[in-house]
């Protein structure tokens, strides 16, 4: 190989993050997405302030983790995550993932994106990586706001687990972070479903609605005992297993099945999106 040839064809870096960075910049600088993050962050604020302002004798009762908030501020994050898990967090992921391909098609930018000398499979991979990063960021926003505000208003200290035993503050923080990452992984799997739905249509709103219908239908089926044979295959069945991190010793069964189901959904729906997107005629 001559020097001239080497100059003409610079070796591309093994992994270029330019496409991913551009995708993330798009997601995190859109005003509607920033507003969505604000809504996610508002829930822990609401919980912490409402519990702080209520009379001190009224602790106990309320949704899961609420009665523990006054003893340890870390539980503000857990209470907020539990409340946002059925609707707000899936909605955020549905909006982003529904937008990822259909949004570009709708704006007419998809064809320009496909002109970039990048294989369609790689483009789809980058799109999915950006969705996963967003899912983690969404869950982390709730946790961070909850933890910070909870510690300011209620203080930290030892954490009482569901099993009735206590662990130190740092172990508590680690468990909260692990629960957040678990939820993010579950949401990323929903994001793969979203990526597939998004590749079917040119209407991002339609895709978002379809993804939300999917996650809500999953929750509904999960609550019907007559179809219990179906439950282990449902995406949302193991979502609440993050609570198993707050037992002593940690019950890993539910968490590992949850991660397996999430990985399986992510793989299957990413491949479905690939099958659809690689042969898709981009007409808009």
């Amino acid at each position: 190989m001559s020097v001239a040839e080497a100059v003409r064809r610079p070796r591309p870096r093994v992994v270029s993050t330019r496409l991913l960075r551009s995708e993330l910049r798009l997601i995190f600088t859109r005003r509607r997405n920033i507003a969505g993050m604000g809504v996610l962050a508002a829930v822990p604020v609401l919980i912490a302030v409402a519990i702080r302002l209520s009379s001190p004798g009224r602790d106990g009762g309320g949704p899961d983790f609420f009665s523990s908030v006054t003893e340890n501020g870390l539980f503000v994050a857990m209470a907020a995550l539990t409340l946002e898990l059925p609707l707000f967090l899936p909605l955020a992921v549905a909006a982003i993932s529904g937008d990822s391909v259909a949004g570009e098609a709708n704006l007419g930018t998809l064809r320009y994106l496909l002109v970039v000398p990048v294989a369609r499979a790689r483009l789809l991979g980058v799109k999915y990586a950006a969705i996963a990063v967003f899912a983690l960021a969404a869950a982390m926003v709730v946790t961070t706001v909850g933890v910070v505000l909870g510690l300011v208003l209620f203080g930290g200290g030892d954490m009482t687990l569901l099993s009735g035993s206590q662990v130190g503050f740092l172990s508590g923080v680690a468990r909260v972070l692990a629960a957040t990452c678990y939820i993010a992984a579950c949401l990323s799997a929903l994001g793969a479903v979203g990526l597939f739905v998004s590749s079917l249509t040119e209407q991002p709103i339609g895709a978002t609605v379809a993804i939300l219908v999917f996650s809500t239908a999953s929750f509904i089926l999960d609550s019907i005992p007559q179809v219990s044979w179906l439950h282990p295959f449902l995406l949302t069945h193991h979502w609440l297993a993050f609570g198993d991190l707050f037992r002593a010793p940690v019950a890993w069964d539910g968490l590992t099945s949850g991660l397996y189901v999430a990985a399986a959904y992510a793989a299957v729906f990413w491949l479905a999106a690939w099958a659809r997107f690689l042969t898709k005629d981009v007409t808009s």
């Binding site: 106990g60 899961d64 983790f65 009665s67 523990s68 539990t82 569901l162 099993s163 009735g164 609440l240 609570g243 198993d244 037992r247 019950a251």
Partner: peptide
């Protein structure tokens, strides 16, 4: 330990102590 979603009831025997614990009722 009886595991509920986000809850747990325990029956612990440790020597001469017998404890029952309910996380929902605290």
């Amino acid at each position: 330990a009886l595991l509920g979603s986000l809850g747990e009831s325990d029956l612990v025997r440790n020597g001469t102590d017998l404890w029952t614990w309910s996380s929902k009722q605290k």
